[in-house]
């Protein structure tokens, strides 16, 4: 984690599988994740459809393939909690991580594993556990287990750390095209 804290930027491809009790088949998506310290993250899916989740400081917005208005997620406490975890994790902010979760960290020659149990009552209503694993400075896998048994597993590939972005890159990656807030 300490290694991740000093990164200038991270870009990774990801594959995510959601196993949800409501659905007959798991939902699978692929895309790219970009993190720029301290608090900017863009998660763009390319399959099965194009979606764009942008976190810029305290503002979160989501836009789907229909190209409609961006949906503001900032006011939704659950969305805030789930999304801000990404920031905390990628920032390598151990102190904040320990405030939110009971962390259980193990490491060995095959890599590291961090298991996080939410401390907050509201979050615990929905999330049972978050497990991260990886090698060196990079996260390879993240699994989110919900209290209802639904499970989301994300595999990170082609992880590049210490990526430098210029202003044009940043504007393109974190553009939400319009205000993220509703009326």
């Amino acid at each position: 984690m300490a290694g991740m804290a000093g990164t200038s930027g991270v870009v990774a491809r990801f594959r995510e599988v959601k196993r949800i009790a409501l659905l007959s088949e798991p939902l699978e998506s692929r895309g790219t994740l970009t993190f720029v310290p301290p608090d900017r993250l863009a998660r763009v899916t390319t399959e099965p459809s194009e979606t764009r989740l942008v976190i810029d400081g305290d503002r979160f917005s989501f836009r789907d393939a229909t190209g409609g208005d961006a949906v503001d997620l900032s006011a939704n406490p659950i969305a805030r909690e789930v999304v801000s975890n990404f920031i905390v994790l990628f920032n390598g902010d151990l102190e904040e991580l320990s405030r939110r979760y009971e962390p259980h960290f193990t490491s060995g020659p095959e890599g590291w594993r961090l298991e996080l149990i939410p401390r907050d009552g509201r979050l615990r209503e929905f999330i049972a556990r978050v497990t991260l694993s990886g090698r060196g400075r990079a996260i390879e896998r993240m699994e989110l287990l919900e209290t209802g048994g639904d499970r989301t597993t994300t595999w990170f590939e082609e992880v590049r750390t210490d990526v430098a972005f210029d202003d044009e890159d940043l504007a393109r990656i974190f553009s939400t095209r319009d205000s993220a807030a509703p009326r």
Partner: peptide, 11 residues
């Protein structure tokens, strides 16, 4: 179904 991919999905 699309909303299940959002961070708001648990709710």
């Amino acid at each position: 179904r699309a909303s299940l991919e959002l961070p708001t999905a648990p709710l």
